[in-house]
Design a protein around this nucleic acid. Structure first.
Length: 226
DNA sequence: GCGACAG
DNA sequence: ATCTTGTCGC
């Protein structure tokens, strides 16, 4: 698929990166265009000393099978700073996305969307840059308050910050730690939660993201050897 | 100053 | 995220 050139550089000072987020957050759209969701692209990253490895797994939600899988490697140019994750991972993730033959209906990121201090987590960033719908599905909280959702699969609790609902804490598997779902771009919270639950069949994490994690972990081990 | 803090 | 061995639980 075609990935537009970003409207900013990636090698920035933290202060400028924050300014970019504040500016681009205004472009986030929390409405869904009505398309049926079938092709879900799971994204994840792993690291070596000097590089970031990005992976994408295109999941066919209708058949429950993998359609495509790709990785891309980029030099590490940004440290990990809570709230600025996308400046560390996005270049490699966009590189992997560019290798897709088919354009996904929605992107599913391992990290938050608008459940972020400036409402612009990595899922929103990648969604806005590609112009595609995106969902944030993180394994832990960055900001916001919530109560523990019920123990059954499908139960959830709102994630609230500054008086607004910024996401949902969702149990994809009974008696296991819930995930944090939020709008990335061009989608609403209801469909984001539905999509995550539809894609998470037997494990705690939805298949697209879980498989992208497996792919990138294996790729990193091969990368560290030679 | 202290605690929190996606991956 | 990554570094690491065994270990508690289903």
């Amino acid at each position: 698929m075609r990935v537009p050139r970003p409207p900013h550089r990636w090698r920035l000072s933290p202060a400028r990166a924050i300014a970019v987020q504040t500016r681009l957050a205004g472009r986030v759209v929390d409405k869904w265009d009505g398309r049926v969701v079938r092709w879900v692209a799971g994204l994840d990253a792993a690291f070596s000393r000097s590089h970031c490895i990005g992976a994408v797994v295109l999941w066919d939600l209708a058949k429950g099978v993998v359609e495509e899988r790709h990785i891309a490697v980029r030099p590490l140019i940004f440290p990990y700073i809570p709230g600025l994750l996308s400046f560390r991972e996005a270049p490699a993730l966009l590189g992997a996305l560019r290798k897709l033959r088919r354009t996904p209906d929605v992107l599913m990121c391992d990290g938050h969307g608008i459940a972020h201090p400036r409402r612009f987590g990595i899922a929103s960033h990648i969604g806005v840059l590609t112009g595609l719908p995106s969902i944030g599905c993180a394994k832990s909280r960055l900001t916001g308050e919530y109560y523990e959702p019920g123990p059954c699969r499908g139960e959830s609790a709102p994630l609230v910050d500054q008086g607004e609902i910024i996401g949902a804490v969702v149990r994809c598997k009974a008696n296991t730690k819930p995930v944090f779902v939020s709008v990335g771009h061009l989608i609403d919270l209801g469909l984001a939660v539905e999509t995550v639950l539809a894609a998470a069949t037997v494990y705690r994490l939805p298949e697209p993201t879980r498989l992208a994690d497996l792919l990138v972990t294996a790729a990193r081990k091969r990368f560290n050897r030679p």
